[in-house]
Computed example of a mutant assay.
Amino acid sequence: MTTAPVTEIDLAAFAADPYPALAAMRKTAPVTFVPQLGAVLLTRRDDVHHWEKQTACLSSDQPGGLMTVLMGQNLMRRDGADHQNERKILFPALSPRTVARHWKPKFEAATRAILDDLKPRGSCDLVRDFAMPVSAHALREITGLTTMTAQEMDSASQAMIDGCANYAGDPAIEARCHAATALIDAHIDRQVAAPPEQSVLAVQVQAGLPMDNTRANVKLVISGGQNEPRDAIAGTALALLDHPDQLALIRQGKADWADAFGEYVRLHSPIGMSPRRAAKQFQINGFDIEAESRVFLMFSSAGRDEAHFTAPDTFDLTRNTGPAIPFGAGPHFCAGAAAARCMITEIALPMLFAALPGLRIDGDAPLHGWAFRGPVRVPVRWTP
């Protein structure tokens, strides 16, 4: 049996603000079983960084896991050669060179059109009206599902990540997830005979990957590739508007948009955790971990570990964010990281602040979630 100490949490409070509970765990029980989640949580950065790479003990292969059951077994739920093979197949669609040469011009054109539409309005919700369509239009191109609307892409992504975090077993959340995956399958069927060049769908079809694997990987790209950039764009903009002294550093050339993005995802990792299955019985820091038990690698907690970050709850563009691991640190490091960084730091943020003079917050802008975290809304105004 698992011998890690037990920590009780209030799920609603944890979703609203997980950081006080995570800080307490880091201090007194960095390896702890949380009954409300049915999992052992690793909350210190060094433990997360080390154990993410130990796939013989903590496996990504989770036949009964929510992602596998709801979305199919994608490359993030494979280890070893199987994982590397599918990652290699996807690489031509997501490599830094492909992003710079093929996707970036498309990202820029879509973002410019969105901002041209927004400028005369004088106000909007940055989540709904800017970050969501910027991310969704980029994802339509990358996946090859150009028949999907931006709203369909966003809704499908949200339904899937809600399903993957549905550890309380809410049947309504599960039903929405199934509807989303069925919608994606229908769009794949429309595009599969002639998928757009360089797309995730195209490279998998060209490599002869089985359709079950291809479908699961497209769903993976949508689930992480929509919500994470959406939440990071809106969240980083919110943090900069909330901290004008930090925004001034960028305008003075003392920091850049990549610094802002790196500090935001350290502070509020959009993907807050990654689940693993204990492939065998073993020990973490002297505590027995039972075979087949569930272990959560808490990236959101790692980014605020006091052992690596001074004043970890403070938004500070001058700090070294190197020890943070918001994209993971092992063999499952986010395959779409180059696309996300390009979209956010080279296009969305600089174009947003350049296009909308006098941009300012205009109301309450709460964040929500623990497995996936981002702003619910970011109401803003500017000078039309």
Rank of each mutant, 00 (worst) to 15 (best):
R276V: 13
L220R: 10
F296C: 09
N320W: 07
L297H: 03
A258Q: 12
I250G: 11
Q246P: 02
F309G: 00
L241I: 10
L267I: 11
S274P: 01
Q283C: 13
A278I: 00
R230W: 04
G303C: 05
V295Y: 00
R276K: 14
K280H: 08
V265N: 07
R319A: 02
A291Y: 08
A279C: 11
V218R: 02
R319I: 01
M298Y: 00
I271K: 06
A302I: 05
A232Y: 02
G328K: 06
H308G: 06
T318G: 15
H308M: 08
L209M: 15
S293W: 03
A193K: 06
I325L: 13
Q191N: 12
T214Q: 02
L220A: 12
E292V: 13
G303A: 08
A207R: 12
A278G: 03
R230H: 01
S274V: 14
K280Y: 02
V265R: 03
A232C: 09
I250A: 07
G224K: 02
N285K: 08
S269I: 00
A278T: 04
N227A: 12
W257P: 00
Q204Y: 14
D305V: 00
G286C: 01
K254Q: 15
D313C: 07
R277A: 02
L247D: 09
P210R: 08
A239T: 01
G303L: 05
D256C: 09
D305H: 01
G262F: 05
R230L: 06
E306A: 14
Q246S: 04
S301V: 03
F282Q: 08
R294Q: 15
V192M: 11
Y264I: 08
G235M: 09
D259N: 14
T321S: 11
D231E: 11
P244F: 04
E263D: 12
R215Y: 05
G253L: 03
L201P: 02
F296S: 09
A255K: 04
A216C: 08
S269Y: 03
G286A: 04
D316T: 01
N213P: 00
T318L: 14
A237E: 00
G328F: 12
G253W: 02
E290A: 13
G253M: 04
L297Q: 01
R266H: 07
